[in-house]
Design a protein around this nucleic acid. Sequence first.
DNA 1: GTAATAGTGTCTTTTAGACAATATTGG
DNA 2: CCAATATTGTCTAAAAGACACTATTAC
Lengths: 246, 246
Amino acid sequence: MKISKPKQGINIGNIERPLTTVDVVIFTVLEEGLHVLLVSRPDTPDEPFKKMWALPGGFIDIQEDIDLESCALRKLRQKTGVQSPYLEQVGSWGGLERDPRGWSATHVYFAMIPAPQKPPHGAQNTEIAWFPITEHGVKMKLAFDHTKLLEAAIQRLRNKVEYTSLPAYLLQEEFTLSDLQHMYEIVLERHIEKSAFRTRVFAADLVEPVDKVRAGPNRPAQLYRLIHPKEIVYFPRTFSPRKINE
Amino acid sequence: MKISKPKQGINIGNIERPLTTVDVVIFTVLEEGLHVLLVSRPDTPDEPFKKMWALPGGFIDIQEDIDLESCALRKLRQKTGVQSPYLEQVGSWGGLERDPRGWSATHVYFAMIPAPQKPPHGAQNTEIAWFPITEHGVKMKLAFDHTKLLEAAIQRLRNKVEYTSLPAYLLQEEFTLSDLQHMYEIVLERHIEKSAFRTRVFAADLVEPVDKVRAGPNRPAQLYRLIHPKEIVYFPRTFSPRKINE
DNA sequence: GTAATAGTGTCTTTTAGACAATATTGG
DNA sequence: CCAATATTGTCTAAAAGACACTATTAC
């Protein structure tokens, strides 16, 4: 199947092309902790990494996907039913070694969704489940180079949470400031000062109050929603002045 | 040449694969301004965007390139002769529309090099030159979606310069603090306070003095070099507390 | 009243910003 | 000496960190 190297740009159909995939790192918060959605690799012959856990993803469908992002959205919709999550590209990884079937390149996206009500559902013959994130990944080794891809996505997430409104996408449309602070604390795995947090959030014009409160066995909390739900907000400084990693 | 859609994962060789390219945005500072290296598209038949300016790049060579980054390094070496620049991935762009030859995906890197002594040299039949960056790009429209890719790289660069040591890679190994500050001011296109700048740089353990000074018609300046030339340094805060634009 | 969480205020520390002052060379 | 740039210091302002205080509900 190998073809002698053609002159670049001439006879384009004969250049040997890498395999091209999209993988999606889907985050949510369940039971007080950050989780990621994984699918088990099929057990069929010819498939590499049989029965190992992997990021949801797969080959680009040239007929169906108009671009990379819509491919990522399609995969996310298929696995979770979520229509419009927060979605951002992490980057791409490609090389000879990462897939035994040949030179391959994958485009990695990460998504954040509110805690789902229904369990995820995979295709037939595949399992699908949420796994808690411990430190830099999940407890088991993943298929392909997905351990590395997941680690990169976690790092991007943690880093960006320091200076953006990203954790709002882990909540339903209406939330209290305590809810929001709680999401920051879960992702960053550290305590955040209530007073400074509220000052920051208000100064950034991130939220507006809705005409409702959340009752409980204590003082009711004001409910808020995002002022501009489509745009993420950048804070002028990071939460705690410490070294940024990436 | 179209093949009816095979079941995914089975018979992998028959899946229609996108074209895969790598493009490199190479920055340097010439004559007090940020410049980017562009090449002219060849004038041969079958080539799209004939004679238009484009980012240096091209198809992955599955035989020669072990991974995406070494492909980017190869292209940079071919155009500039530079062996070990600062190189970082910006992201990937893929879709049906961006290349008239078919569904294509490109992996974009950006590099920063010191002002070169020699002019760049392209392959035969191609021109190659440095172009000044004005606001968000260059003055002419580029081939493919390269105007968009260049804009993304510029935004990444400007944003990251706010809180990292990146501009050091625009200088030779030894430089004065004024030199370094000057690079920041050129990339960010604004004045930076001398005193605050020096405090920041020293607090970050970015540089160490070498036993030399640079003479001139005034007080000589201490020469410094990077303490860890291979690692970029992250400052705990941005230079000026203002909104970060991604 | 108490328990519990929501929300505010006060003081300190850190660091950037503005700008002044001093230092060191060549001529 | 002067011109020019290097280097340091001083004061102020903005924002985070720590922590205490007040507010409002269910019971």
